[in-house]
């Protein structure tokens, strides 16, 4: 009797767990992107841009126009090309107003991403001025990832993330997931509103 009860209880538990699992998975599959507003303290680090020039990250992010940051790497497949296509399209949509946004891609593969690799990458995507790709020492890159609550110990387990800094108050809109250009433009405009 006791054993049967344990078996039934186990069966119920398993069913409960698996049904919850399938709901969680289905939900995640359907989710488009998640949005939150965060406050980040930009660490005082100096990185290198695609021209090999030293760039103080906090000077770059401190801007009167919205600043959009993402984490990618030069030889990445899957999500980086899609994130970068998002940057390209936002520059295209803004056209002559493309100076009204500052785009910053930060590498998560600082060993391989030399200024040359990054310059070639931007060229491949026909990036316009106003889109910088930054590399640096692994320690500095780790510090930056941690500051944006985006630390990953290995580049192979990264995820799609855009962060838009709102010039009016310096807060950041954190956007997890892939957006359509229309959605991305909408988020940009919300962030740009004075």
């Amino acid at each position: 009797m006791g054993i049967t009860f344990v078996r039934i209880a186990l069966l119920v538990a398993v069913l409960f767990i698996t049904s919850n699992l399938s709901i969680a998975v289905a939900h995640a599959d359907n989710a488009k992107y998640k949005k939150s507003v965060e406050n980040y303290t930009i660490p005082d680090v100096t990185l290198f841009n695609q021209d090999g020039k030293k760039v103080r990250l906090s000077s770059l992010t401190n801007s009167d126009v919205p600043v959009i940051v993402d984490f990618i790497y030069g030889t990445c497949t899957t999500i980086c090309p899609v994130l970068s296509a998002g940057f390209v399209n936002i520059q295209k949509r803004l056209g002559t107003d493309s100076n009204k946004v500052r785009l910053i891609s930060i590498t998560i593969d600082p060993e391989n991403d030399s200024p040359k690799v990054m310059k070639d990458y931007l060229k491949r995507y026909r990036a316009k001025p106003g889109w910088d790709f930054l590399t640096g020492s692994r320690a500095d890159i780790d510090t930056v990832m941690k500051a944006f609550n985006a630390y990953i110990p290995d580049k192979m387990s990264h995820y799609p993330l855009n962060m838009i800094r709102m010039p009016k108050n310096g807060s950041w809109v954190r956007l997890f997931g892939l957006m359509s250009t229309k959605e991305f433009m909408h988020e940009y405009q919300l962030a740009a509103d004075k």
């Binding site: 497949t77 899957t78 090309p81 899609v82 970068s84 296509a85 998002g86 399209n89 491949r124 995507y125 892939l178 957006m179 359509s180 250009t181 229309k182 959605e183």
Partner: peptide, 19 residues
């Protein structure tokens, strides 16, 4: 991608993800 994100496949080909 996502209906309106146009990508140029010379930067992002089938083999990028499917290897």
């Amino acid at each position: 991608i996502r209906g309106d994100v146009e990508v140029d496949s010379t930067a992002f080909s089938c083999s990028s993800c499917h290897l």
